[in-house]
């Protein structure tokens, strides 16, 4: 994805950002049940694993030598992505959050997301390919506070609340995973 994003109208750009800001606010306010209404029933929710790969000598001098894509073991690879989920998985995660015995969220984490760099990369019919970056501050009693950083690669379709997320791939920035869990709704 080395090309510029699509030319958008200020209204279209605003609509995308409005949607992501709303989504971030719901998640930080722990309104996960409402968040789930932003998700399409056929969603693919993915998080590739991130690997330290060998430098390929033949790629020397080219951007492909150190491309991020080479580091990802995603759904098409025969590695093991960290998450490959459907609506059902997300539903289980949301239901779990509202049980008093989900101990790793009792007391729940305090989070704050900043979502930015929203870029509309492609449009096919109704479906929009959108990139966004996020930083998330995460604090839980008994644990050291930490920062989550990553990129989201979404497929959005227009819906009542702006859009519906029909595919999300979350590319996390980590070497070793030092955060308590990658099971958050990101």
């Amino acid at each position: 994805m080395s090309e510029l994003s699509l030319q958008t109208t200020p209204e279209q750009q605003r609509a995308l950002e409005r949607f992501y800001h709303y989504e971030a606010r719901l998640l930080d306010a722990r309104q996960y049940q409402q968040w789930l209404t932003l998700v399409s029933p056929d969603i693919r929710y993915l998080m590739p694993s991130r690997v330290n790969v060998m430098v390929d000598n033949r790629q020397r001098g080219k951007e492909s030598m150190i491309s991020v894509e080479r580091e990802l073991e995603g759904e098409d690879s025969l590695g093991c992505p960290i998450r490959e989920e459907s609506y059902l998985h997300l539903m289980v995660r949301v239901e779990r959050a509202f049980k008093i015995n989900s101990w790793s969220e009792n007391p729940p984490a305090r989070t704050r997301r900043i979502v930015g760099n929203v870029e509309l990369m492609a449009q096919e019919g109704d479906a929009l390919s959108v990139l966004s970056n996020f930083h998330l501050y995460y604090a839980r009693p008994g644990n050291a506070d930490c920062i989550y950083s990553g990129q989201r690669r979404d497929l959005l379709v227009p819906a009542e609340q702006g859009y519906s997320i029909s595919r999300r791939e979350v590319v996390m920035d980590y070497a070793n995973i030092e955060v308590p869990t990658l099971g958050l709704l990101l």
Partner: peptide, 22 residues
């Protein structure tokens, strides 16, 4: 079959987050 592992276990697993907390 790999999702039999990753859904519940590993760093993003629904179940294992409770274990590491403990």
């Amino acid at each position: 079959l790999r999702t039999n592992y990753s859904s519940f276990f590993g760093p993003g697993g629904i179940l294992e987050q409770e274990d590491s907390e403990v």
